[in-house]
Design a protein around this nucleic acid. Sequence first.
DNA 1: GTCTATATGCAGATAGAC
DNA 2: GTCTATCTGCATATAGAC
Lengths: 193, 193
Amino acid sequence: MRESTGGTRERIKAVALELFTEQGYEKTSLREIAERLDVTKAALYYHFKSKDEIVTSFVEDRLELIDELIAWAEAQPPTLETRRALIARYADAMFTSEQPSVMRFFEQNQTVLKSLSAGQQMRGRLMKLAEALFRGDDSPSAQLRATLSLFAVHTSWFAVRTPHISDEERRRIALEVADELLAPIGQPAGPAR
Amino acid sequence: MRESTGGTRERIKAVALELFTEQGYEKTSLREIAERLDVTKAALYYHFKSKDEIVTSFVEDRLELIDELIAWAEAQPPTLETRRALIARYADAMFTSEQPSVMRFFEQNQTVLKSLSAGQQMRGRLMKLAEALFRGDDSPSAQLRATLSLFAVHTSWFAVRTPHISDEERRRIALEVADELLAPIGQPAGPAR
DNA sequence: GTCTATATGCAGATAGAC
DNA sequence: GTCTATCTGCATATAGAC
């Protein structure tokens, strides 16, 4: 417990993220977060002026990161190579980060997040990311494929149930499937039978 | 408003489903549901003994339906044809039903549903459905593909952003992509590059 | 920077009249 | 089958002492 000096804000973020992800935003009370940290509710209000400001705090880092990816992609030609590189970079961000669970939190709290500005921003950003993935081919199937390739990355943590599988292996599988989904995008015609 | 006699229970279900889906389960109060129906909260308690019993009421129909699909699939050989037929039947159920939004509700309230028994049952059932889709090939990539094929059906309503597109067209696109995802399952080796 | 104490409000739920 | 009235509890949030 070395970090008790000054690190309180970070500890609040970490605990809140964990509880929000597990139980949901609405079901997690500030009392619960405070108890877990062995402080009082009032202490939380010193660090964050409201409950949803806690959410904002850990969503913002991700927004920046996604913005960078989008900007990078838009500077590239809309080729398959670009799409693949983009999803790979995104997967790196998801798997590498110290807190991969920000996206899990987001997935698990979609509806609630609609009414939070942080949530709306994140929603918008993921839309733009999907757009960057199908850029140059806005056919319905390309749109669906692009979105699903993001889901491949997001859901591999639970969709792959094999026990004891490593994160690196999950990432590899996710990208294998994502690549296949991206392949037909931008082709003259989809792989209709 | 012909159904005002006796149809109250159904009207409650319909409004609750809509609000739960849009705003989330926790954020939607019984007061809000009651106001929308122009009745009092107490009236709701005549029809349902608790808030989560409302959820249970509209989840149960779906459970049965999914159970039938699973049972059917398990009676078939684990071939690609079976997988494709299964996802097609599932898509029919999703798109045909009078209330396709039950699954939307479920997607949007995952975390909250963890603590509701109806939610746990639905979770379990979707897991089994995914298993039925990769039956005979439990490789990690097959598991991910099977899960994503379900997502293709579930998410086509928002992932495909083309305006004025019909439900039938969405269903067709979803199945096109789902079929592609299912194709490599059960093959000697995945389509590694 | 963290505390105690408290304000204020709405949630889910029940009792019992009509 | 729907109402009014009310219970009980916990939520977010604030004021002000230490």
